[in-house]
Design a protein around this nucleic acid. Structure first.
Lengths: 342, 342
DNA sequence: TTGAAAGCGTTACCAA
DNA sequence: TTGGTAACGCTTTCAA
């Protein structure tokens, strides 16, 4: 009950302008029936008093928080950062604002954040992937708040979905490698427990190899997600010790691929002549590394844009029911790091 | 006035547990005087009803939003992402939550976000750098909300400061280059208009060269911030056309340095034998590139941790007045990309 | 340790 | 187009 400072309220503005708070409230919002005279008068009064709308009261009174809760695994990832940019651009100049949370690839942390967010009464919640704790699912469904899961195609979606099949995306790459003539194909990913999208890529890798009649033995777990550059050295070492004749290493992400590549180069191996490398995610680095790194563009930013679009539709009572699932197709990008020479 | 769904209120819980709302309110918060009997009873009742505290009402009623507004230039930058991680870890398990905004290096956008944030009544605001529009400064000071500016040491700080001198940090690097024997030193940065930290580094570069009796001509503007890898090629081209005998290129950030390096390598130049390269920011890439890239570690994460700590102090009425300015000293990291061979 | 009553500043609703 | 009035669900304050 003790506001940090005595700021002018709507009441003060109303008195100053000689109207009621209701008129002030209307005048300060767009698309409301207020005569332009009154509106200018009120805006002037508000300016003079240095009035700033108390959003906490609006939210409480209207039941509309203007928040969209967005939960991603980590901020320190250019792919998710791109998704966020897409989202924010979609909301720009709308009344909506993102409330961001990062789970660090932990489902229990996700649950914690969801619970925290729920108290803010967001108008929609965006989750990354389709794996959540039971309690998390229950909290969300009980709240009745619309949900979008992104970056994946969950088997049992909570609400709507914007994403792609990480399994299929990985298969795209394996097919390319096979077509290029590679047969001793290795895979470096994170531990399989927490990064479900990484896991799906690994599954795609395994299935795909089997389909081509190859056996998917050459797999190394680099450690806890987020798998970063500094896990590459150990993983490459393990790979080359166990299977020295590996002719290509497929990595679960571009930064890992890059670091794996330079590790190979440090060992005096030439990429792609002695060993080929490929990544995932179409990070900037894949385009600028030497050699350039083959990758899969999962169109991270477009995912964000589509999510924003879908949310705007879901929140619009006028809008007819839209698709439950939007698929953003990944695209293979072939570059120098997987070009067979012979 | 129309909440999206009829959820149970504190009143319902109170009735269910046979107490008043006030007791429920207390029971649901830590450090309040409620008998453990009553508390268990109330928690049970809340659980049974599936009650979720309406934070919007708490915020409104208590005048404490629990928000810390944090404004950075861009999310897609590992340095700022690290700062955010430091911040969030500092707030973890506290009642505070970050509300994040990205300006895209635009001061007017910063002003827009500040205005938006102010409506949420954040308990503190964290800004990046010391440059803001006049109106932005006024909005913030009028609000009476505590401010921290970070990542810089502003001449006229609005409130408290956690940062370092970008100028001095750049000088650290120039001194190293000079000591190493380089004399024809070039600089690639962004345009000077919007990224003030980048600008300060440039100024440090210029001043430092003058101090060493060298003339700071070899400067190329890569374009609009955020300066990214794809601006390196053009910048390197310009640099080598205008000053073909440049013996080292200092870049305003590591990603740029990396891309500049690979561009040189593509042209058949060897780094550091034919030309040396260095960056700024101690990004992962600088450690894993081949050769490894000399850089300045600005300890981004520590900045975030210090900001969180300072905010906690500022918000604690018990705490004695703390320092107005916390300096986090950057550290030079010398790597292979600037090792003179002869 | 618990309760009763009074707001907090805005918006919804209905009337003028 | 404008005004009056009643919430919105919680916390503060003070009293028991």
């Amino acid at each position: 009950m003790n506001k940090p400072r005595k700021q002018p309220t709507m009441h003060d503005v109303a008195r100053h302008a000689g109207v009621t708070t209701m008129t002030v409230s209307r005048a300060l919002r767009p698309n409301t029936s207020v005569s332009s005279n009154t509106r200018t008068k009120i805006k002037k009064a508000a300016d003079e008093l240095g009035y700033v709308l108390d959003g906490t009261a609006s939210v409480f009174s209207s039941g509309k928080s203007g928040f969209i809760g967005v939960i991603i695994p980590t901020i320190n990832n250019a792919n998710f950062a791109d998704t966020l940019r897409g989202l924010n651009e979609g909301f720009k100049d709308q009344r909506l604002q993102t409330l961001l949370g990062a789970t660090g690839y932990s489902l229990s942390e996700e649950e914690r954040i969801v619970q925290q967010f729920l108290q803010r009464r967001p108008e929609a919640i965006v989750l990354t992937g389709g794996s959540h704790t039971e309690r998390c699912r229950k909290l969300i469904t009980n709240s009745g708040i619309p949900v979008i899961e992104m970056w994946d195609l969950p088997k049992q979606p909570i609400g709507k979905v914007v994403g792609f099949s990480n399994k299929k995306a990985a298969k795209l790459m394996v097919k390319h490698l096979y077509d290029e003539g590679y047969r001793r194909i290795g895979f470096i990913g994170g531990d399989t427990t927490s990064d479900m999208r990484g896991l799906d890529r690994r599954i795609g890798f395994i299935e795909s190899l089997k389909e081509f009649g190859l056996s998917p033995d050459r797999m190394v777990a680099a450690g806890e997600p987020p798998v970063a550059m500094n896990q590459a050295r150990g993983a490459v070492t393990e790979m080359l010790q166990k299977w020295p004749d590996t002719d290509v290493i497929m990595c679960v992400s571009d930064p890992l691929a890059f670091a794996a590549m330079t590790e190979c180069q440090r060992r005096g191996m030439s990429v792609p002549d002695d060993i080929a490398i490929c990544g995932f995610g179409a990070y900037d680095i894949s385009e600028h590394a030497l050699p350039t790194i083959s990758t899969v563009d999962v169109r991270s930013k477009e995912i964000g844009e589509q999510v924003a679009k879908k949310i705007l539709q879901m929140l619009d009572p006028e809008s007819r029911d839209n698709e439950n699932q939007t698929i953003v197709e990944p695209k293979l990008i072939v570059r120098d790091s997987t070009k067979k020479q012979n």
